[in-house]
């Protein structure tokens, strides 16, 4: 069932360069690239033909500023035309500095303001469960600094308390939270009943193992640690 079409790293870099168009990208862009590749290459059951299928897996990019790699990957996978990348952010472009679900095929939520994706993903997981759809899984990508927003902690506590087993949160931990997470980001989830795995965010096999080690009875979090700049 799992898709295993690996994205050619050279192609992805070339597409990313088309988005970049000479600008400098911060660590947030490069640190997210590996986990996005593993999700789209090996985990998510979604394709350009199934973006409206009610039984598709959902991927919600909550840290909407990590958008360059996201767009490059959506282009590499055929969700959007490659030519869209050249004018990212332009007056006629569908690709903003944060993604808009009404403008970009394959994008599940419009994001940008931090702390909205996890609540939306909890609602999405509940909606699938209420409609008797046990197969699709909901994945949401957050940043460690994004966890500062209190809305996340409302969602973490509730998803844990209700055993929302069709939900996986991925926390891209590039150590950017101003006050850090003493004891690790994962502990905020596990204390609320989530299962958790903390892995090297560059190690594709470790990411794949972590992203598929949920138990279907509890929500699952993968903390992907990336401390280098990626260049």
């Amino acid at each position: 069932m799992t898709t295993t079409t690996a994205t050619d790293p050279a192609l992805l870099r070339a597409l990313l360069d088309r988005v970049r168009a000479g600008r400098d990208f911060g660590p947030n862009v490069y640190s997210t690239l590996d986990v996005l590749q593993v999700l789209y290459d090996r985990v998510l059951r979604i394709s350009p033909d199934t973006v409206d299928d009610p039984d598709r897996d959902r991927f919600l990019l909550s840290k909407g500023h990590a958008v360059a790699g996201y767009y490059a990957l959506l282009a590499a996978k055929g969700f959007i035309p490659v030519a869209w990348l050249d004018d990212q952010g332009g007056p006629d472009s569908r690709l903003g500095d944060h993604p808009d679900r009404l403008l970009v095929p394959g994008v599940e939520i419009g994001s940008g303001s931090l702390g909205h994706g996890l609540g939306l993903s909890v609602g999405t997981a509940l909606g699938l469960r209420a409609q008797g759809r046990p197969d699709p899984r909901v994945y949401v990508l957050l940043g460690d600094a994004e966890l500062d927003e209190g809305s996340n902690h409302e969602a973490i506590a509730y998803a844990g308390a209700t055993g929302l087993g069709n939900l996986t949160a991925v926390v891209l931990d590039n150590r950017s939270a101003s006050h850090g997470w003493p004891g690790g980001a994962a502990s905020r989830f596990t204390v609320n009943g989530w299962t958790a795995a903390t892995v090297d965010g560059r190690d594709h096999d470790a990411l794949h193992t972590a992203l598929t080690s949920h138990d279907h009875h509890r929500p699952h979090v993968v903390v992907a640690v990336v401390t280098d700049s990626g260049e």
């Binding site: 009610p54 599940e108 939520i109 702390g115 909205h116 996890l118 609540g119 939306l120 993903s121 909890v122 609602g123 999405t124 997981a125 509940l126 909606g127 699938l128 469960r129 209420a130 409609q131 209190g150 809305s151 409302e154 969602a155 506590a157 509730y158 308390a161």
Partner: peptide, 26 residues
Amino acid sequence: PERVLNVGIREQLMVGVAGGLALTGL
């Protein structure tokens, strides 16, 4: 039980959950 959801005293989550439910067609 799966369509009457009390999230506790969490109003941000209450509206976020509503958005997610609506995204699935509810």
